[in-house]
Design a protein around this nucleic acid. Structure first.
Lengths: 189, 189
DNA sequence: TCAAAGTTTCAGAAAATACTGAAAATACGA
DNA sequence: TCGTATTTTCAGTATTTTCTGAAACTTTGA
């Protein structure tokens, strides 16, 4: 690996972190490299920078594309494929959330729905099913909320986040102001 | 593995999911088993149910305890250790969020802070540093927001989530009502 | 203090995953 | 069409991770 020290530590950190996230080291490193790069890179640039094999790079880029985390583009007069990450960190964040939703949450919800449908035989299964239902309700609520949040524009979202727990107070405030909060959703309690 | 089919599919699913989350199969399976069990289980119960070795069970339970995802208790007149999961799914969710924060987010923030402090040498490093700063700001904002949310009581939290994107409208409403929203945070442009 | 019951550690085996180089496939221009 | 530049695939190898059984350790009651 032959990179400025500042960039190298960033790249190495993402490589290590990969294992916590179920992605492999090379994928993490390549993503990090593209993220901080000031220009799109081709596969050979990456091999040069990271020090992995050409084929490994090819695999990793394919995976990053499957996650929609990198963009593929061509430079005029150059046949090679160049890769870069989206500029907007919020957009990246949303993509990550969407993909994890699709890969991890959806299959779990499907499994839970199936299990909850079954007729339980015996007390153990009855209890298990009740627990699965609790989990199902929670995941579905959080999921829908995330989907709602994803669709907000970044400005509103930042405002909301900076507000933090104050939002609870605002909620109570609007509540006492004539139940505006409940007017459309109508689902409290 | 010798379990009612309904419970078995749940346990197996969590085992598979483990790899997406950086935990191993046995840990995932044991957690799932404890989650749906209607009584605390001891290590031998678990070996019997899952079909793994005694020592593997011991390791997995230690890891689950490190994550604060299982409770250890003793039954009167029995020297063995019994394990169970907290009942409240919200509490579980919050514990998970806290632990991931501590294990994954904090180290990343530390690394980023270090990198941002350095004096860049050359344009490539300057650009990289700017990108790292964007990432740092985003993670810190989301982190603080999560911490705020964690501290809400469950009732308010559920209300907030059910409200979903409506919250954006409420925000604008309060905004026009005299900038209550901005009063305490004071950070909006 | 000893013996019994229970738990943890750890070195090595087994399994899973990541990585490589060579060969095949593809895309492109002449 | 051919030849070159580039990317992808794949079988085998290396590395990492998980799992096991035996041994060591701990706790408790007599």
């Amino acid at each position: 690996m032959n990179l400025p020290p500042l960039i190298q530590s960033f790249v190495l950190h993402f490589g290590e972190m990969g294992s916590h996230w179920g992605i492999n080291r090379t994928v993490g490193q390549i993503y990090a490299l593209l993220y901080v790069s000031d220009r799109p890179l081709n596969a050979d640039d990456i091999v040069e920078a990271i020090g992995c094999s050409r084929s490994n790079t090819s695999m990793a880029l394919k995976e990053l594309q499957a996650w929609r985390l990198v963009k593929l583009q061509h430079l005029p007069g150059d046949r090679r494929e160049y890769f870069s990450t989206p500029e907007d960190v919020w957009a990246i964040f949303k993509t990550l959330a969407e993909e994890r939703q699709k890969r991890e949450v959806e299959p779990t919800l499907t499994m839970l729905r199936g299990a909850i449908m079954e007729t339980p035989s015996g007390e153990a299964e009855r209890h298990a099913q009740a627990r699965m239902n609790e989990m199902y309700q929670l995941i579905e609520l959080v999921t829908k909320w995330f989907a709602d949040i994803r669709d907000m524009d970044v400005e509103t979202l930042e405002k909301l986040m900076k507000l933090g727990s104050q939002v609870g107070k605002v909620l109570q405030f609007t509540h006492s102001l004539g139940r505006l909060a409940g007017r459309d959703s109508g689902k409290e309690d």
